[in-house]
Amino acid sequence: MRPHGHRTPTGRAGRLRLRRSLATARRGADLLERKLRLLLDREQTERRAADTAGRTWRERLSDADTWLVRGVLLGGESALAQAVPAGLAHVDVRWATLMGVRHPEAVALTGPVRSAVEPTPPNTALAHAETAYRAAIRAAADHAVHLAAADLLADESARTRQRVRALRRHWIPRLEAELAAVELALEETEHEEAVRRRWAASHRSR
């Protein structure tokens, strides 16, 4: 927006200045609209990926819970204590940037590593449960990454849309109106000058 107290420029210099400002504003709006399209496309892609990962997460978790119940029924709670490795899972997130928006792009998951001295799951059901829980953790991490990326892109899309709206609905129309007023004033001035020149020429010829 223009500073308080701004006065519309006049004359040919003012017209040139307004034309340049108008061209810059239109070019800026075009670039912002292109950015907005790219952001919205990527956001939709991330939303779909998050939905897919979310479904996979819920399915793997359900499978894991089923195997866990079977394993506990077969071996008791003491068998469950033996089946859980002492280590922790590690998640590394790779980041990317799109149109100035930094967002998570992918995730690398390293599951807990069972040491050589740790016992293995005492029955097949608990072994299946461990595998299913690892898959569920990976799907959950994928879901979180894609959902976070979609939210970050959506936030920037909203800001970009607001800037485009300000340019298209307020700034550009104002510049167009100011330019039209300056051009009309110049036309009137040029017409008056032409009339005076003709009047002066006619009096000199007498």
Rank of each mutant, 00 (worst) to 15 (best):
G5C: 01
E130Y: 05
P121R: 07
A25Y: 01
W67S: 00
R206M: 11
A129K: 00
H203P: 03
Q162G: 13
W171L: 08
A29V: 06
A53F: 04
E190I: 07
A81V: 11
R94N: 05
A64W: 05
T8N: 04
G54V: 09
A135H: 08
A132F: 04
A177P: 01
R47K: 11
A125D: 06
V91A: 09
A50L: 08
V164A: 05
G75Q: 10
V113D: 11
R161I: 04
V195A: 12
L152K: 04
S21L: 14
R165Y: 06
I137L: 14
A13G: 15
H170G: 04
Q44M: 12
A108I: 07
R27I: 02
T45R: 05
A177R: 13
R26G: 01
Y133K: 00
G5H: 03
R134T: 05
W199T: 14
D51L: 08
A132G: 02
A23L: 09
L32T: 06
A89I: 01
E192N: 08
G111M: 09
D155I: 12
L18A: 13
L152P: 03
R165H: 15
A108Q: 11
K35E: 13
L68M: 14
V182H: 00
E187A: 12
G87H: 05
W171E: 09
R161A: 13
A141M: 07
L126F: 12
G87E: 12
L179V: 07
G75T: 11
G54N: 07
L98N: 02
W171Q: 05
W57H: 15
S157K: 03
A96W: 00
G28L: 09
E105P: 01
R55A: 11
P3R: 10
V113A: 14
R42W: 03
Q44R: 15
P122H: 03
V164Q: 03
L179Y: 00
R17V: 13
A129T: 01
A127T: 08
T131E: 12
V69L: 13
T66G: 10
A23F: 09
G71D: 02
V101M: 00
A148V: 02
R204G: 09
L147E: 15
E77T: 15
S205E: 13
A127E: 11
R94W: 02
A141H: 07
L175R: 01
E156H: 03
D41F: 05
H90V: 15
R197D: 15
L36V: 06
L153P: 01
R102P: 04
H6V: 08
P9H: 01
Q162R: 15
H90F: 09
A194K: 13
E59G: 00
R196F: 05
V117L: 13
G76A: 02
L88W: 06
W57Y: 15
A89Q: 04
A79P: 06
A141L: 02
N123S: 10
R174C: 02
A81Y: 11
L74N: 10
T189S: 15
R20F: 04
L22Q: 10
T97V: 13
A79Y: 05
K35N: 08
E192P: 01
T110V: 09
E43R: 15
D92H: 08
A83M: 04
H128K: 14
R159P: 02
W67R: 02
L32R: 06
L32D: 05
A154F: 03
P121W: 07
